[in-house]
């Protein structure tokens, strides 16, 4: 019988475990927890010369400054808008793709399509934005097609107009991640009990009815848990592509909180403002996660923690 009490023999045997746990914890304190001390900067008039310990405390002044900055309010709007749009379209496309792929009759074809669908996930945003630039350029495929079918008379300069930016970002996300995001739904679909489909068929269910009454309910827990994980990340989802695709002409709609932090913190050297913006983002993210978790619990769904 095992007892919960710690005995000396156990402790001696566990020496090696304790050693590694301590080493990795020290590593974690330095690289994951020590930066949290830097949050103090947001409440200070931080000067690199005086450092964290001797800079003057200013309370919430930096936050007040932040929220009186029109451009900060704008980056909040941009981050939220792009986060929500991306989440909605990538979610929808991944589920749609997974269901349709599952309905494909040819096994070999299914395999090939799925393999191809992963490809963009493995490409960096640098490559993806480069590809987008080519496809959307004056001589690129999109303008060529639009001209060919007479939809436009002049090539559109997609990167010069604010109205195109959010759709481009959403499309890029769909292009890059649909196949990858579908993996988990496909795994969930495979684990649905086949007898449910047989039963549905006996009841006279057609293809649509089966999808609606067997497949979708079968992957609902997976959808819920992924939705939860992603809603918490809505504010985290905006940096690389916006940074790489944005330009002076569209900066009103392209800049996100992360870009704002980078701009103020690193380029302008105002660490306090940059940190305050970063804290705002973290706090909102945590609140979102807690709310989602609570909602899930209330509806009896699976939870994150």
């Amino acid at each position: 019988m095992k007892t919960k009490a710690i005995n000396m023999v156990d402790l001696k045997r566990q020496k090696v475990l304790i050693f590694w746990a301590a080493a990795i914890t020290i590593y974690g304190i330095i690289f994951n927890y020590l930066p949290l001390a830097g949050w103090l900067m947001a409440f200070q008039n931080y000067k690199p010369v005086t450092g964290l310990l001797h800079s003057q405390f200013v309370g919430l002044a930096k936050f007040k400054l932040l929220f009186s900055d029109v451009s900060f309010l704008r980056v909040i709007r941009n981050t939220l808008a792009m986060g929500v749009i991306n989440l909605a379209v990538t979610f929808f496309m991944a589920i749609l793709f997974a269901i349709l792929l599952n309905e494909m009759a040819s096994k070999g074809g299914k395999k090939v399509v799925q393999t191809i669908s992963y490809l963009p996930h493995f490409l960096s945003w640098i490559i993806v934005t480069g590809i987008l630039h080519d496809a959307l350029s004056g001589t690129g495929i999109i303008n060529t097609l639009l001209l060919h079918f007479g939809a436009v008379t002049q090539p559109i300069n997609f990167f010069a107009h604010e109205k195109y930016f959010w759709p481009i970002v959403a499309f890029a996300n769909v292009w890059k991640e649909t196949g990858w995001n579908a993996i988990i739904y496909l795994a969930a679909i495979t684990s649905i009990d086949p007898s449910l489909y047989e039963a549905a068929a006996i009841d006279g269910a057609g293809r649509w009815a089966k999808i609606k009454h067997v497949t979708l309910p079968g992957i609902k827990p997976t959808i819920m848990i992924l939705l939860l994980m992603n809603v918490g990340n809505v504010l985290n989802a905006g940096f690389e592509i916006q940074y790489l695709l944005g330009n002076g002409l569209v900066q009103n709609v392209s800049q996100t909180i992360d870009i704002y932090v980078l701009k103020w913190g690193i380029s302008q050297g105002d660490y306090s403002i940059g940190t305050a913006a970063g804290i705002f983002k973290s706090v909102v993210a945590i609140v979102l996660i807690v709310i989602c978790n609570h909602l899930a619990k209330k509806h009896g769904e699976e939870r994150l923690f």
């Binding site: 994951n32 020590l34 930066p35 949290l36 001390a37 830097g38 949050w39 900067m41 918490g232 992360d258 932090v261 980078l262 913190g265 690193i266 660490y271 940059g274 940190t275 970063g278 804290i279 983002k281 973290s282 993210a285 945590i286 996660i289």
Partner: peptide, 9 residues
Amino acid sequence: YVNGGLIPT
């Protein structure tokens, strides 16, 4: 869920 963010890091 919690990290220091860009500038402190």
